[in-house]
Every structure is written in structure tokens, then in C-alpha cells.
Design a protein around this nucleic acid. Sequence first.
RNA 1: GGGCGGUUAGCUCAGAUGGUUAGAGCGCUACAUUGACAUUGUAGAGGUCAUAGGUUCGACUCCUUUACCGCCCACCA
Length: 743
Amino acid sequence: MSMDKKYDHKLQEPAIQKKWESADVFTGKIEADKKPFTIILPPPNASGKLHTGNVLMLAIEDVLIRWKKMQGYSTLWIPGTDHAGFETQLVFERSLKEQGKSRFDYDRDSLYKAIWDFVQKNKEIIEKQIKSMGPGLDWSRYTFTLDEKVINTVYNTFQKMISENLVYRDDYVVNYCPKCGTTFADLELRHVTRKDPLYYMKYGPFTLATTRPETKFGDTAVAVNPKDERYKDYIGKEIEVEGLNGNFKLTVIADDFVDPEFGTGVVKVTPAHDKNDYEAGKRHGLKIKQVIGLDGKMTELAGSYAGLSVQEARKKVVGDLQKKGLMVKIDESYEHTISVCYKGGHEIEPMVLPNWFVKVETLKKPALDAVLNKEVRVYPRWREVTYVRWMEEMRDWPISRQVVWGIRIPAWYNIDENSDLQVTFINKNKERATGKVSDLLKSYSYEEIESGLQSLVAAKDAKFVISRTKPGNRFLQETDTFDTWFSSGQWPLVTLGYPDSEDFRYFYPISVMETGWEIIRFWVSRMIMFGIYLTGKPPFKDIYLHGLVRAIDGKKMSKSLGNVIDPLDYIDEYGADALRMGLISGTANGRDFAFPKDKVIAYRNFANKLWNMARFMLMLMEDRKVEFYDEKNIKGLNETDKAILIELENTKKNVNESLEKYRFSEAADFIYQFMWHEVADKYIEHVKDREDKELALSVFRFVFVEGLKLLHPFMPFATETIWSNLPKNEGDRELLVSLEWPK
RNA sequence: GGGCGGUUAGCUCAGAUGGUUAGAGCGCUACAUUGACAUUGUAGAGGUCAUAGGUUCGACUCCUUUACCGCCCACCA
């Protein structure tokens, strides 16, 4: 047996990976005599690259899986990837752009298929990268978020919710980006501070301040604060306003949302184009006048301004107001925050569109209680507040998204019963046509519309049929897709084959949900809601939330800041073990932390140290007959022997206690201290001076191997490699991961 | 604007239920190459625990103030 002077991770890691694979050690098995231990991997983006957050997640979950497996549990860790709705569509569209195309050149079905192919091509990259970390995943149960079984479950759930009256359609102010031609979730917005002119204009008897004079055509009321003495007498009255398209009348309403301190204390209310105004409009029963279209241009309702872009219209309106003497003053130094889409940075236009909603009132209560009564435990504890607050405040959930890449909502509209359906499609001449379906049917056949369909907008009271397949002739399917959280919220269920499978009965509920704390609201809360709603049981017992890995500059990594660290570089340079340990030892308590490069190097050195400890041991054992340590029959131990054995006991206790509490960093530290500073620095030096080397070596080998086991969940490659070089006792298994955990 | 968290050695971080000389890794200094490892060993320097106050016999640890940093959320026209 020959071992090089240095531990070479590049040589050893792929070899060990193959060993685990061929031994099939991580395939989950249903074993009646064992307790299950289940984890589901939060699915990384299928067409993305492995990032540092993924690595941390893999490292932590692998520690849990290997630890529990060695403890004798029947473990299962299911991998998966996420279709990552809009994110992926955007990347795909970039590649289209390079070919001089855009998604508007495709009908909906063709676009979906094209993205599907695109993702399939890229999927292998992330899978390979995940594997390079050495995680004990069961790839035979691998799930993609658009797999047939996922869609089936999601459809069933939707059907159930419809039949139980938990789903309804309503208007909703969406964050619409005219440039991208799609809506964004609140999460996908960025808020930027910007200086914009604040216009003070005459408005009937008032002067009011606004940054958006061009939306005045959509005003359907004027609002003041009910406590504002200045305008008390106007409340409830109708005022006449001189406008650019002639005079018009509006009612003055009183509402608390108006800040008397801002501007003049009078606000124009534009329910169609402002979230705030929409809410106020709902409270006061105001009309909605849409003056900006989905193309970002002024609609017919803007009169002579129709067809202008928002920017052009604003300019013209300002000029015209000045000409008419309706502009009182312009404050050029006004600073405010506006919403922009997170990718393109384009300004968001709030729009009112019909959407699908889930009533959360009955769903959220049990989900909140499950955490409050400790049925589900949150680690670290202080994160619980985030969850509790969110569940208390949670409002009805809009689940429809105007994106192609996702699970299409299985609702069908009969075109004869819904003649006002707004339809956009590509006709036979490859031209886009848009309009009311009843009008379009005059020039086009139903078949032509159907095959070229891009998108449709159904009124909120439209008649629909829920069906997995086309329910009959002359039906068009909803073009919106489900919010990705609607499907990923059922992830623990779909991956385990809910509702009826051996896996589901044995492995559900899963043991630990390990994920980043920043998605506790969007993901964790939905999983608990769906889990309880569909099975009556929370989908998991424990939640461990790891912190965010920040860049060296202490900020969140992002492409625009240019501070992203590629973990693959570290795997290449220092090894997956070193990277895993480096990240874990930085992540105590689930707090955010800066990427610990120093520690990665330190643990690369540690792997080498272990390697050389083994080499030295083997060298000393070469010409000697060393018995395997036997606690019961060993005789002649001296004080140092006893001390290291006691130290081993302490370490076992400490590592186990730390792991039970999800204190990974602490556990890693204990075993590191033991191996390096107790075994190597003290005991090995002692062995060198021993007369009775055989006895000392037997103790040395014993504590070393016990240490390797304790360390294995953290540094699986190095420990497994070293184990493969050591002589085995009778009954010892070929693989370290299959050995019994030190108790 | 609201919420959460952070501020401990040059750097990155640990320090349950408050109690002798505040810890680790890296870096730094000095020595060491005499059975593995220089990705090494031994020894050492280095901290008014952000700030101001309070509770206490006693606080890095509990309470309050201020400042700065980070993240999440947010409808101020």
C-alpha cells in the first residue's frame, strides 16, 4: 500500500464518489424494523449553476443524512431541480435575442416546448455540479418541478380547492412591466430611490401634488384625510374639474390613507394604476378607468393622448397644463422610491387584471398553530417570529402568473359563452393579432386562434370549466400559470408520491426541512399550509434555517455587484470536503456570514493532516503485530492512553449533543480539535516514545477510526479515502459510511 | 417607513440559563527540520467585548439610548 505525501482531493474525490454510487448506499429503502429519516432537497434552478448557497445547503443536509444513516435510521434524501419560472424564461429569451428573435414570435405551446428543450439541455450541468459535492442523495427518486407527477398533484389540489370554494377570481393590481410584457411578483421587484419632479396642479377647487400627471384621465375620485380641517366641508361633495379633455366631475372621499402632511393633503385617486388607490377604490366603490394599456401606451380613455407612451404623455400633459395655467408649481427636488423589475430594471406599471386567488383564512390558522404549539419546531428559535408574523398578516394569495414557463392553470373558457375574452395569437401569416374573441372570430377560424394562441385575459366573472384535458370544442385554456410557490408548496408531498404510495406512508412527514431563512414566508409557510390541508399533518417536524452566505464585502452576492464567488473554483482548488467544512464552520446559529475562504484553506490542511496521521500509523504498524483494540480485554493502559480515551468519550458526547441541536459549526469544531490537537499533537507524539508500541498503536488506531466516523458526515471524501487504506477488523464494512456511528 | 439580525483580537467568526486569567481559524513574531505532515511543530504578541446609561455583590452575556452595517418586508401620491 502506498500513500503519497499529500492528500490529493482531485484524485480521491471522484474515485470515492464512484464507490458510493456503485455500492448504492443512498437509495432509500422501506425497512419496517427501522425508523425513517427523510429530507427533501430544496430544488436548485434546473438551468442554473451551483452557487454558494446551494453548497451550504448540500453540506448541512449531507451531514444530517450521513449522521442519521450511521445511527441506523432508514434514510432518504430526495434530490430535485426547479423550473424556476420567470428566471429561466428570461435566460431563454436572452438566447432568443441572440438569434434575432423574441418570445412574441412563438405561440404559447411552441414557446413552452422550446424552453423545455432548452432546460433539458442545461439540466445535466447542475446535476453534475451537485454530485461533485458528494451528497448522499437518492437519485432514483429525482424529481423535476414540471414532472408529470408534480403536475398531477397540483391539478388535483387545485380541483379540490375549487370544489371547496377556496379559489376565486378577482381583480388584482399586478406589477406589470410593459418592456418585459409580463407581470412580476412583489418579490421580483427592486425598489430604487429616484429624483422626480413633483407636480402641483390645479384640480377644481384644490391644488394637489402628483408625480404622475398623465394618469389623471384615470382618476375616479379625489381623496383627503377625514381629520383634515381644511377640506372637511368638501367630503362627500362633487367637484368640477377643468381637464385637458374637457371638464369632468369627481366625488371627494375621505380616507385615512391620505397623509395630510404630504403635498397639499389632497390626492387624486387612480384605482387602475396605483396599488394604494386601488385599495381605496375598493373601500369606496370607485370605478376603475384603465388609461394605460398592456403595451405601455395610453388607451382610448386618455382622449387625445391615446397611443402615446407613458413618458410622452407625461411630457405633453405637463406642457398642456402649463399652457392652460393649471400647473401651480413643480418641485424638482422630490425624492421617492419607485419599483422596477428585478432583472431589466424597467419601471413597473401597476395594472388591474383579473387573477386567480386562494382564500387563506381557513388554511393559515392550523399552519400557524402547528408552529405555536411546537408540533413543528423552528431552529434557530429566533426565526420563529418571522413565520408567526407572516401567518398572522397573510392575506388572500394570488396564484396566477402571466408567464408561460410553469404549470398552466387547468381552466377552460368556452369562446361562445365568453365572447369578450381578450385574445392574442399568431395567425397563419405569422402576424400577431389581438382583440375580443367575438371580433376575431369574424376573420379567423377557432382552429387558427387556438393553434396560434399566445395569451388571453378573461373577465373576472368569466365562465370556466376546470379540466385536465380539453373539455370540448371551442374551448381555450387559461394561459396563466400557477405561482411557483403553489406547486413547490406541495414539494414534500409530490416527491414522496402523495397520496398513495409506499414511500408516502413510510417517509412522510419528512424529518427536517432545511432551507434558507429568506424563503420562510414564501415556501415554508405554503408547505405547512398544503401539508395540513391535504394530509391533516404538518409536512415536517423540524425546520432548520441556515444563514445567507454573503460575499467578502459583507453584502449579498449578486451579479450586478460583481461580488459573486463561484464555489466550483474552491472545489477544484481545495476540494469539496474543505469547502463544505469551511462553510459549515462559518454558519453557526443560522446567521448570515461572509464567505470564509481562510477556513476553506484551513480544512484543506486538515484533510492533509488526517491523511498523514494515517500514513504514519501504517508506517509504524508495518513490522509489528497490532491487535484491534478491545475495550473489555485490553490491559496495561497508561495514564496517557486513558486520557485520550476519555477525550474520545467527551468528543463523542459533544459532537452528538451539538448535532441534536443543529449546531453544526460547534460539532465540526469539537471533532477538529480532537483529531488535530488531541490525537495528532499529543497522542502521536506520545506514541513515538512508547516502549510498548503495539499497545499504543492499537489505542491510536482505535481513537483515530472513531474520530474518522465522527468526522465522516462533515468530510466524507477524505475520511472514506483514508478508511479504504486502513486494515479492517473482522466484521468491518468496506465503506466508512456503512459503519455504525460512535455512541 | 416597519421587522429581524449584527457591531468581540489585523481579518472571518464562537462565546445556552450573567460568576476565576474572553476563545478558534487565518495572519503576525521568535524558535524548531531528531520515524507522518512546512498544507508541520513549540512558544508568544494582540481585545477599555460599537456607544451612553441602568439592573446586580458581579455583565461580552439582562434592560434602555445612540450610531453605523446587513437582510427581509412595505401602498405615501
